[in-house]
Amino acid sequence: MTEFFTGLFLVVGAAFMVVAALGLVRMPDLPMRLHATTKAGVLGAGLMMVGVAVYFGDGGVTTRAVAVIGFLLLTAPVAAHAIGRAGYFVGVPLWEHSKTDELKGRYDEKTHTLSSPPEMHEPEDRDDASR
Protein backbone atom coordinates (compact mmCIF):
# COMPACT_ATOMS: atom_id res chain seq x y z
CA MET A 1 0.00 0.00 0.00
CA THR A 2 2.86 2.34 0.82
CA GLU A 3 4.52 1.48 -2.46
CA PHE A 4 1.29 2.11 -4.35
CA PHE A 5 0.89 5.59 -2.92
CA THR A 6 4.58 6.36 -3.39
CA GLY A 7 4.45 5.38 -7.03
CA LEU A 8 1.25 7.37 -7.50
CA PHE A 9 2.77 10.51 -6.01
CA LEU A 10 5.97 10.09 -8.05
CA VAL A 11 4.20 9.59 -11.37
CA VAL A 12 1.68 12.38 -10.80
CA GLY A 13 4.46 14.76 -9.74
CA ALA A 14 6.56 13.88 -12.78
CA ALA A 15 3.49 14.40 -14.99
CA PHE A 16 3.05 17.88 -13.53
CA MET A 17 6.73 18.51 -14.28
CA VAL A 18 6.12 17.53 -17.90
CA VAL A 19 3.16 19.92 -17.99
CA ALA A 20 5.38 22.68 -16.64
CA ALA A 21 8.09 22.02 -19.24
CA LEU A 22 5.47 21.88 -21.99
CA GLY A 23 4.16 25.24 -20.88
CA LEU A 24 7.70 26.58 -20.81
CA VAL A 25 8.20 25.57 -24.43
CA ARG A 26 4.76 26.34 -25.83
CA MET A 27 3.74 29.58 -24.11
CA PRO A 28 4.40 32.67 -26.24
CA ASP A 29 5.40 35.14 -23.56
CA LEU A 30 7.65 35.60 -20.54
CA PRO A 31 4.86 36.10 -17.95
CA MET A 32 2.93 33.15 -19.35
CA ARG A 33 6.03 30.97 -19.14
CA LEU A 34 6.52 32.08 -15.55
CA HIS A 35 2.90 31.26 -14.86
CA ALA A 36 3.31 27.76 -16.27
CA THR A 37 6.64 26.81 -14.73
CA THR A 38 6.22 28.29 -11.27
CA LYS A 39 2.90 26.76 -10.34
CA ALA A 40 3.12 23.41 -12.10
CA GLY A 41 6.82 22.98 -11.30
CA VAL A 42 6.41 23.61 -7.59
CA LEU A 43 3.38 21.34 -7.48
CA GLY A 44 5.31 18.57 -9.23
CA ALA A 45 8.38 18.80 -7.01
CA GLY A 46 6.21 19.03 -3.91
CA LEU A 47 4.24 15.93 -4.87
CA MET A 48 7.46 13.99 -5.44
CA MET A 49 8.73 15.07 -2.03
CA VAL A 50 5.41 13.93 -0.54
CA GLY A 51 6.14 10.59 -2.21
CA VAL A 52 9.51 10.45 -0.42
CA ALA A 53 7.85 11.21 2.92
CA VAL A 54 5.19 8.54 2.34
CA TYR A 55 7.72 5.90 1.29
CA PHE A 56 10.02 6.14 4.28
CA GLY A 57 7.48 7.09 6.94
CA ASP A 58 10.35 8.13 9.19
CA GLY A 59 10.28 11.19 11.40
CA GLY A 60 13.53 12.71 10.19
CA VAL A 61 12.88 12.02 6.52
CA THR A 62 9.37 13.42 6.76
CA THR A 63 10.65 16.55 8.46
CA ARG A 64 13.26 17.12 5.79
CA ALA A 65 10.79 16.50 2.98
CA VAL A 66 8.37 18.97 4.53
CA ALA A 67 11.25 21.45 4.83
CA VAL A 68 12.01 21.04 1.12
CA ILE A 69 8.35 21.64 0.26
CA GLY A 70 8.26 24.67 2.54
CA PHE A 71 11.37 26.16 0.94
CA LEU A 72 9.92 25.58 -2.51
CA LEU A 73 6.63 27.21 -1.59
CA LEU A 74 8.43 30.15 -0.01
CA THR A 75 11.05 30.82 -2.65
CA ALA A 76 9.33 30.06 -5.97
CA PRO A 77 6.78 32.92 -5.94
CA VAL A 78 9.43 35.41 -4.83
CA ALA A 79 11.81 34.28 -7.56
CA ALA A 80 9.06 34.39 -10.19
CA HIS A 81 8.09 37.88 -9.09
CA ALA A 82 11.70 39.06 -9.27
CA ILE A 83 12.23 37.59 -12.73
CA GLY A 84 8.97 38.96 -14.08
CA ARG A 85 9.70 42.40 -12.67
CA ALA A 86 13.20 42.41 -14.11
CA GLY A 87 11.88 41.21 -17.46
CA TYR A 88 9.35 44.02 -17.54
CA PHE A 89 12.05 46.57 -16.73
CA VAL A 90 14.41 45.28 -19.39
CA GLY A 91 11.64 45.52 -21.95
CA VAL A 92 10.86 41.94 -22.85
CA PRO A 93 8.03 42.22 -25.38
CA LEU A 94 4.62 40.89 -24.46
CA TRP A 95 2.59 38.63 -26.68
CA GLU A 96 1.25 40.53 -29.70
CA HIS A 97 -2.34 39.54 -28.86
CA SER A 98 -2.15 40.83 -25.29
CA LYS A 99 -5.17 42.96 -24.46
CA THR A 100 -3.98 45.20 -21.66
CA ASP A 101 -0.69 46.36 -20.20
CA GLU A 102 -1.66 48.06 -16.96
CA LEU A 103 1.81 49.37 -16.20
CA LYS A 104 2.35 50.95 -19.61
CA GLY A 105 3.02 54.65 -19.33
CA ARG A 106 2.61 54.72 -15.57
CA TYR A 107 6.08 53.57 -14.77
CA ASP A 108 9.11 55.74 -14.21
CA GLU A 109 12.04 53.72 -15.46
CA LYS A 110 14.66 55.84 -13.77
CA THR A 111 13.35 55.87 -10.23
CA HIS A 112 11.34 52.62 -10.35
CA THR A 113 8.25 54.25 -8.93
CA LEU A 114 4.69 53.62 -10.02
CA SER A 115 2.36 56.56 -10.52
CA SER A 116 -1.38 56.40 -10.79
CA PRO A 117 -2.86 58.19 -13.79
CA PRO A 118 -4.75 61.44 -13.19
CA GLU A 119 -8.01 60.14 -14.62
CA MET A 120 -8.33 57.12 -12.35
CA HIS A 121 -11.58 55.33 -12.94
CA GLU A 122 -13.53 55.20 -9.70
CA PRO A 123 -15.71 52.16 -8.90
CA GLU A 124 -19.44 52.74 -8.86
CA ASP A 125 -20.24 51.74 -5.34
CA ARG A 126 -17.71 54.02 -3.69
CA ASP A 127 -18.42 57.62 -2.77
CA ASP A 128 -16.04 60.48 -3.36
CA ALA A 129 -15.24 60.97 0.32
CA SER A 130 -13.01 57.94 0.37
CA ARG A 131 -10.77 59.27 -2.34
Binding site: A14, A21, L24, T37, G41, A45, M48, I83
Partner: peptide, 12 residues
Amino acid sequence: VALELIASLTIG
Protein backbone atom coordinates in the same frame (compact mmCIF):
# COMPACT_ATOMS: atom_id res chain seq x y z
CA VAL B 1 12.95 30.73 -16.15
CA ALA B 2 14.22 27.62 -17.90
CA LEU B 3 17.09 27.32 -15.40
CA GLU B 4 14.67 27.56 -12.50
CA LEU B 5 12.51 24.82 -13.95
CA ILE B 6 15.63 22.68 -14.44
CA ALA B 7 16.46 23.16 -10.74
CA SER B 8 12.96 21.96 -9.82
CA LEU B 9 13.44 18.98 -12.13
CA THR B 10 16.70 18.14 -10.38
CA ILE B 11 14.83 18.13 -7.07
CA GLY B 12 12.42 15.63 -8.64
